[in-house]
Protein backbone atom coordinates (compact mmCIF):
# COMPACT_ATOMS: atom_id res chain seq x y z
CA UNK A 1 0.00 0.00 0.00
CA UNK A 2 1.31 3.44 -0.88
CA UNK A 3 -0.17 6.16 1.33
CA UNK A 4 -0.71 9.45 -0.54
CA UNK A 5 1.81 11.27 1.63
CA UNK A 6 4.46 9.12 -0.05
CA UNK A 7 4.09 11.70 -2.83
CA UNK A 8 4.71 14.58 -0.43
CA UNK A 9 2.33 17.08 1.02
CA UNK A 10 -0.77 17.51 -1.15
CA UNK A 11 -0.82 20.78 -3.04
CA UNK A 12 -4.56 20.90 -2.44
CA UNK A 13 -6.58 19.09 0.21
CA UNK A 14 -10.26 19.77 0.79
CA UNK A 15 -12.90 18.16 2.95
CA UNK A 16 -16.52 18.04 1.90
CA UNK A 17 -19.63 16.41 3.24
CA UNK A 18 -21.21 13.48 1.43
CA UNK A 19 -24.03 15.61 0.05
CA UNK A 20 -24.51 15.35 -3.74
CA UNK A 21 -25.14 19.09 -4.02
CA UNK A 22 -21.39 19.60 -3.53
CA UNK A 23 -20.42 17.41 -6.49
CA UNK A 24 -20.45 20.38 -8.85
CA UNK A 25 -17.96 22.25 -6.65
CA UNK A 26 -15.64 19.26 -6.55
CA UNK A 27 -15.80 18.93 -10.35
CA UNK A 28 -15.07 22.61 -10.77
CA UNK A 29 -12.02 22.41 -8.51
CA UNK A 30 -10.56 19.33 -10.15
CA UNK A 31 -11.26 20.51 -13.70
CA UNK A 32 -9.73 23.92 -13.08
CA UNK A 33 -6.56 22.50 -11.54
CA UNK A 34 -6.23 19.95 -14.35
CA UNK A 35 -6.46 22.80 -16.87
CA UNK A 36 -3.55 24.59 -15.19
CA UNK A 37 -1.54 21.36 -15.28
CA UNK A 38 -1.75 21.14 -19.05
CA UNK A 39 -4.85 19.12 -19.88
CA UNK A 40 -7.16 20.18 -22.69
CA UNK A 41 -10.82 20.95 -22.05
CA UNK A 42 -12.08 17.48 -22.93
CA UNK A 43 -9.54 15.75 -20.69
CA UNK A 44 -10.35 18.18 -17.86
CA UNK A 45 -13.99 17.24 -18.22
CA UNK A 46 -13.14 13.52 -18.18
CA UNK A 47 -10.94 13.86 -15.08
CA UNK A 48 -13.72 15.77 -13.33
CA UNK A 49 -16.12 13.02 -14.42
CA UNK A 50 -13.89 10.32 -12.89
CA UNK A 51 -13.74 12.21 -9.59
CA UNK A 52 -17.49 12.78 -9.70
CA UNK A 53 -18.09 9.06 -10.20
CA UNK A 54 -15.72 8.20 -7.35
CA UNK A 55 -17.50 10.63 -5.01
CA UNK A 56 -20.89 9.25 -6.06
CA UNK A 57 -19.72 5.73 -5.24
CA UNK A 58 -18.58 6.85 -1.78
CA UNK A 59 -21.90 8.62 -1.15
CA UNK A 60 -24.06 5.82 -2.57
CA UNK A 61 -22.24 2.67 -1.48
CA UNK A 62 -19.77 3.74 1.20
CA UNK A 63 -22.08 5.98 3.19
CA UNK A 64 -25.49 4.62 2.14
CA UNK A 65 -26.50 8.12 0.93
CA UNK A 66 -25.92 9.73 4.32
CA UNK A 67 -25.44 13.46 3.70
CA UNK A 68 -23.13 14.38 6.56
CA UNK A 69 -20.11 12.09 6.32
CA UNK A 70 -16.62 13.36 5.43
CA UNK A 71 -14.82 12.91 2.13
CA UNK A 72 -11.33 14.26 1.45
CA UNK A 73 -9.91 15.16 -1.94
CA UNK A 74 -6.14 15.62 -2.25
CA UNK A 75 -4.37 16.77 -5.40
CA UNK A 76 -0.73 16.68 -6.47
CA UNK A 77 0.87 17.51 -9.80
CA UNK A 78 2.77 14.59 -11.28
CA UNK A 79 6.17 16.09 -12.03
CA UNK A 80 9.28 14.98 -13.86
CA UNK A 81 12.40 17.15 -13.76
CA UNK A 82 10.29 20.01 -12.43
CA UNK A 83 7.80 19.93 -15.27
CA UNK A 84 4.14 19.06 -14.77
CA UNK A 85 3.38 15.75 -16.44
CA UNK A 86 -0.01 14.96 -15.03
CA UNK A 87 -2.26 14.95 -12.00
CA UNK A 88 -2.63 12.65 -9.01
CA UNK A 89 -5.87 12.76 -7.03
CA UNK A 90 -6.69 10.84 -3.85
CA UNK A 91 -10.25 10.44 -2.58
CA UNK A 92 -10.57 9.20 0.99
CA UNK A 93 -13.52 8.39 3.21
CA UNK A 94 -14.44 6.86 6.53
CA UNK A 95 -16.72 4.19 5.10
CA UNK A 96 -16.54 0.50 5.93
CA UNK A 97 -13.46 -1.09 4.43
CA UNK A 98 -13.94 -3.56 1.61
CA UNK A 99 -11.57 -5.80 -0.31
CA UNK A 100 -10.03 -3.57 -3.04
CA UNK A 101 -10.24 -6.55 -5.40
CA UNK A 102 -14.03 -6.22 -5.25
CA UNK A 103 -13.91 -2.75 -6.75
CA UNK A 104 -14.44 -3.85 -10.33
CA UNK A 105 -16.73 -2.29 -12.92
CA UNK A 106 -19.44 -4.43 -14.40
CA UNK A 107 -19.30 -5.75 -17.94
CA UNK A 108 -20.75 -3.34 -20.48
CA UNK A 109 -22.30 -6.04 -22.64
CA UNK A 110 -25.38 -6.06 -20.42
CA UNK A 111 -27.03 -2.71 -21.03
CA UNK A 112 -28.83 -1.66 -17.87
CA UNK A 113 -29.01 1.40 -15.63
CA UNK A 114 -26.32 1.81 -12.97
CA UNK A 115 -23.00 0.22 -12.13
CA UNK A 116 -20.99 2.24 -14.63
CA UNK A 117 -18.97 4.36 -12.21
CA UNK A 118 -15.92 2.14 -11.71
CA UNK A 119 -15.78 1.34 -15.42
CA UNK A 120 -15.79 5.06 -16.25
CA UNK A 121 -13.07 5.77 -13.68
CA UNK A 122 -10.79 3.04 -15.04
CA UNK A 123 -11.49 4.04 -18.65
CA UNK A 124 -10.74 7.72 -18.12
CA UNK A 125 -7.70 7.58 -15.83
CA UNK A 126 -4.29 6.01 -16.46
CA UNK A 127 -4.19 4.58 -12.95
CA UNK A 128 -6.97 3.88 -10.44
CA UNK A 129 -5.95 2.15 -7.22
CA UNK A 130 -8.30 1.27 -4.39
CA UNK A 131 -6.83 0.51 -0.97
CA UNK A 132 -7.80 0.41 2.66
CA UNK A 133 -6.78 3.48 4.67
CA UNK A 134 -4.43 3.10 7.56
CA UNK A 135 -6.10 2.72 10.96
CA UNK A 136 -8.78 0.25 9.95
CA UNK A 137 -11.39 2.75 8.81
CA UNK A 138 -12.14 4.06 5.36
CA UNK A 139 -11.00 3.56 1.79
CA UNK A 140 -8.68 5.50 -0.48
CA UNK A 141 -8.89 5.73 -4.26
CA UNK A 142 -5.81 7.18 -5.95
CA UNK A 143 -6.20 8.35 -9.53
CA UNK A 144 -3.43 9.35 -11.92
CA UNK A 145 -3.77 10.93 -15.34
CA UNK A 146 -0.76 11.80 -17.44
CA UNK A 147 -0.89 15.06 -19.37
CA UNK A 148 -0.26 14.98 -23.11
CA UNK A 149 2.23 17.85 -22.80
CA UNK A 150 3.50 20.27 -20.18
CA UNK A 151 2.18 23.76 -20.82
CA UNK A 152 2.37 25.47 -17.45
CA UNK A 153 4.49 28.61 -17.67
CA UNK A 154 7.10 28.82 -14.98
CA UNK A 155 7.82 25.13 -14.70
CA UNK A 156 9.99 24.88 -17.80
CA UNK A 157 13.24 23.17 -16.92
CA UNK A 158 16.61 24.92 -16.95
CA UNK A 159 17.80 22.59 -19.70
CA UNK A 160 14.75 23.35 -21.82
CA UNK A 161 15.25 27.06 -21.20
CA UNK A 162 18.85 26.82 -22.45
CA UNK A 163 17.62 24.95 -25.52
CA UNK A 164 15.14 27.73 -26.29
CA UNK A 165 17.86 30.35 -25.84
CA UNK A 166 20.21 28.53 -28.19
CA UNK A 167 17.65 28.53 -31.00
CA UNK A 168 17.12 32.30 -30.89
CA UNK A 169 18.80 34.27 -33.69
CA UNK A 170 21.98 36.08 -32.70
CA UNK A 171 21.75 39.88 -32.40
CA UNK A 172 23.42 41.69 -35.30
Amino acid sequence: MTPPNAHGRPHIRVELLSNPIYLSGARELVGTVAKRLGFDDLDCSKIALAVDEALCNVIRHGYGRALDRPIWISIWPVEHDGAAEGIRIAIEDEAKQVDPEQMQGRALTDIKPGGLGVHIIREVMDEATYEKREGGVGMRLTLVKKAPRPTEPGVITEAASRAVQSTRPQAR
Binding site: R27, D52, C56, P113, G114, L116, I120
Partner: peptide
Protein backbone atom coordinates in the same frame (compact mmCIF):
# COMPACT_ATOMS: atom_id res chain seq x y z
CA UNK B 1 -23.30 21.10 -19.84
CA UNK B 2 -22.41 17.96 -17.94
CA UNK B 3 -23.75 14.47 -17.37
CA UNK B 4 -22.49 11.65 -15.16
CA UNK B 5 -23.42 7.97 -14.95
CA UNK B 6 -26.58 8.73 -12.98
CA UNK B 7 -27.79 10.75 -15.96
CA UNK B 8 -26.82 7.94 -18.28
CA UNK B 9 -28.67 5.44 -16.11
CA UNK B 10 -31.75 7.65 -16.21
CA UNK B 11 -31.68 7.71 -20.01
CA UNK B 12 -31.03 3.95 -20.26
CA UNK B 13 -34.02 3.30 -18.03
CA UNK B 14 -36.17 5.64 -20.14
CA UNK B 15 -34.98 3.98 -23.35
CA UNK B 16 -35.90 0.54 -22.07
Amino acid sequence: DYMDSSGLATLVEAMR
